[in-house]
Amino acid sequence: MDKYIFPVTYTEAYYTNLTNAGWHAFSLLAYFHELLVGSLTCRLETTEEEGVYRLYVMTIGVLEPYRRLSIGAKMMQKLLDNVAAEQNTIISEVALHVQVGSTAFEFYKQFNFTVKEEVKEYYKDLEVRDALLLTKVVAQPNLKKGDKAPAKKK
């Protein structure tokens, strides 16, 4: 499905890593009458603070005939709701890159993502190569202050 949605081609390694990491509440599939029409994939990234993660949105897309039906917006809202409801993993922020000048920027502004920085030459195979790194902090009221994810064993 991705080859019909995104302007870049993902390698087999991308999909292998995605499936090996295991599906979680931060990656979503969207169906329209039992037909897969959209997806949102994420990965948890470590931060400098032990036990605290950043959730990086790798892809979000909907097949062309099903756009303008709020499917992408529903997936993004569900992702943000899942972060807010998370009880085991501290997520300091949700982050993603968007191509400079893309109409998708307006989509992310609806969810109060803000520009953290501009990244020159982020996209290698696109005409417009620069990207904006967008971030959003999502409150996690189900995590008590001082809660930390268990430290990894060495």
Rank of each mutant, 00 (worst) to 15 (best):
G101A: 11
K124W: 13
L132H: 12
V137W: 09
T103Q: 14
V115G: 07
Y108G: 00
A95N: 05
K136I: 01
Q99V: 10
K145A: 05
N112S: 12
A95R: 07
Q110K: 15
L143V: 02
R129G: 07
G146V: 03
N142C: 07
K144I: 04
Y123R: 05
N142H: 09
K144F: 02
Q110H: 12
Q140M: 06
V100G: 06
K136W: 04
D130H: 13
L96F: 12
V119A: 00
A131P: 04
R129P: 05
A95E: 08
L133T: 01
V98K: 04
S102E: 12
P141Y: 11
T114D: 00
A131L: 05
E117Q: 05
V119L: 05
V137F: 09
P141R: 10
P141N: 06
V115F: 10
K144V: 02
K145P: 00
Y123W: 08
E127V: 08
T114K: 06
F113Q: 05
Y108I: 02
A131T: 01
Y108T: 00
A139V: 14
L134I: 02
V137Y: 07
L126S: 07
L132Y: 15
L134F: 06
D130F: 13
S102A: 14
Q140I: 01
L133D: 01
S102T: 11
V128T: 14
K116F: 08
P141G: 05
V98Y: 08
H97W: 15
T135E: 10
T114P: 01
F105Y: 10
A139D: 15
S102C: 13
